[in-house]
Simulated assay, not measured.
Amino acid sequence: MPITSAAAARSHVRAVVGDHWRAPAGPASERAVTDLLLVVSELVTNAIRHGGGLAGFEVDLLPEGVRLSVHDYSDAVPSAAYGSGALPDPHEGSGYGWPLIIRLSREIRIECRREGGKTVSVLVPLR
């Protein structure tokens, strides 16, 4: 099923994580899954709003968490790509997504795609 919206991406990730984390190691905490789904929403929404559309979405399960890779059609890198995660001041109705991604994720990577656009990849810890 192609992912075309943040809601579809969240649903897909919830299913993948639910199946995986029911293993003997025990489930991820509700807070960790909520943080993961927030990052999913922000990454996909940013691709749609600022990246010329969603070109692809991948979920990889790792022992320490979930790697999300979101592909879009824009070569533009977020202006605060590897910032501190500080929230914008003053609040003007937007600008919270990228700082939240930075705060909740690790190993943030932004790579240009051969066919144009970029991939934003993050690791969201679940333990």
Rank of each mutant, 00 (worst) to 15 (best):
L126A: 06
G53Q: 07
D75A: 15
H71F: 14
L54N: 09
Y73A: 13
L43E: 07
A81W: 13
E64D: 14
S79P: 12
E42R: 14
V122T: 13
V44R: 11
A81Q: 05
A28Q: 15
L100Y: 08
G116I: 12
L104W: 09
R106P: 05
D89R: 15
G97I: 13
L87V: 08
G117S: 11
T4A: 12
G56I: 11
P63N: 02
V59P: 02
S29G: 13
S69K: 04
V59W: 02
L61E: 11
R103P: 05
V59H: 01
V66S: 03
S69P: 00
Y96W: 11
A86E: 15
G95A: 10
E92Q: 14
S121P: 02
R10D: 02
T119M: 08
S79W: 12
V13N: 03
Y96G: 00
A32D: 10
L87Y: 15
A76Q: 14
S5R: 10
S29E: 09
I3C: 05
P90A: 09
P24T: 05
A9Q: 06
G65Y: 07
D72V: 06
R109M: 11
M1K: 07
V40E: 01
T45W: 04
Y82K: 05
Y96C: 01
G56H: 10
W21Y: 14
A23S: 13
V66H: 09
S94P: 00
V44M: 08
V13F: 12
V124I: 12
L54D: 10
P88W: 09
V13R: 01
D60C: 00
R113P: 00
A76M: 10
L68G: 03
G95L: 08
L104D: 02
G18N: 10
V40Y: 01
R14D: 15
S74G: 02
S84P: 00
R10V: 02
V124L: 06
F57G: 03
P27W: 06
I110F: 07
S41A: 10
A55F: 04
S84V: 03
P78A: 00
A8L: 06
D60F: 00
H91S: 11
A32H: 07
G97S: 14
G53C: 11
S29Y: 09
R14C: 02
T4C: 00
V39S: 07
F57K: 05
A6D: 10
S105R: 09
F57S: 05
G65W: 05
L123Q: 06
S105A: 15
A9Y: 04
R14N: 11
L43I: 09
P2C: 01
T34V: 12
A80L: 13
S29T: 15
L126Y: 09
S69E: 03
R31I: 09
A55S: 13
A80I: 08
A6I: 04
P99K: 10
P27H: 10
V124K: 08
